[in-house]
């Protein structure tokens, strides 16, 4: 063996073929396994913040999203009518631009009684439009229809429109807004079950018209 080829770890196994060396060097094999184990531990610890960051949006508490926000003067909404209202989402961030804007349908049933409907169809979220003559909300996407009180009239939606919780504070109409309304993140979960198929209201007037 040449003088120059000496190295600190030289051992009696140097003459063996590589496989033999690996087999013979149980200490190195052990150290390698140990190092792999160390990497696994470090990796697992590292994964905690990485996944925490990635899953951050999903981890937020449900109640955290949303606050009460005014959508206008009570006087802006005449009794018996349904009007479009707009507000800036209270959960918008710096980069949301115009997507932070939200609209909703406000129906004033009586002086103190309102219904505030989400613009999003309960089927797949398209923007529903109110037609005052036929007293229907119609969805442009798949033709879902809702009655003036938000209950399902026909089409693919399996329940009525999502409603925001509201209260009247002084002169303004205040609603609780946050999440984009979907079946899982609807505006008011308590009042309506997740899946509600409302049968069309039976009409009793059909006999009187003829007379």
């Amino acid at each position: 063996m040449s003088e120059f080829l000496k190295y600190p770890g030289e051992s009696s196994n140097d003459a063996l073929p590589p496989e033999g060396k690996a087999a013979a060097h149980t200490r190195r094999a052990f150290l390698f396994k140990l190092a792999v184990g160390m990497n696994a531990v470090v990796g697992a610890v590292l994964a905690v913040p990485l996944f925490g960051y990635l899953l951050g949006p999903a981890a937020k508490k449900k109640s955290a999203a949303g606050t009460w926000i005014s959508i206008g003067d009570v006087a802006d909404f005449p009794v018996g009518e349904t009007r479009l209202a707009e507000f800036r989402s209270p959960v918008a961030t710096f980069d949301d631009g115009e997507t932070a804007k939200v609209s909703c349908w406000v129906r004033r049933v009586s002086a103190q009684k309102f219904q505030v409907f989400a613009i999003n169809c309960a089927h797949l979220g398209c923007p529903v439009r109110w037609f005052s003559e036929s007293k229907l909300f119609l969805c442009p996407c798949h033709g879902g229809a809702y009655y003036e009180d938000g209950s399902r009239a026909s089409g693919p939606p399996e329940r009525g429109l999502f409603e925001y919780r509201y209260k009247i504070a002084g002169n303004s109409l205040v609603i609780h807004a946050g999440d984009m309304p979907t079946l899982a993140t609807q505006a008011s979960c308590k009042d309506k079950p997740l899946v509600q198929i409302a049968p069309p209201t039976p009409e009793t007037r059909s006999t009187t018209w003829e007379g």
């Binding site: 999903a58 989402s89 949301d96 999440d179």
Partner: peptide, 15 residues
């Protein structure tokens, strides 16, 4: 609900 937040990156469609 969590999945919606994951897809949207937050409570609403936005930045």
């Amino acid at each position: 609900a969590q999945l919606v937040h994951m897809v949207l990156g937050g409570p609403i469609i936005g930045g």
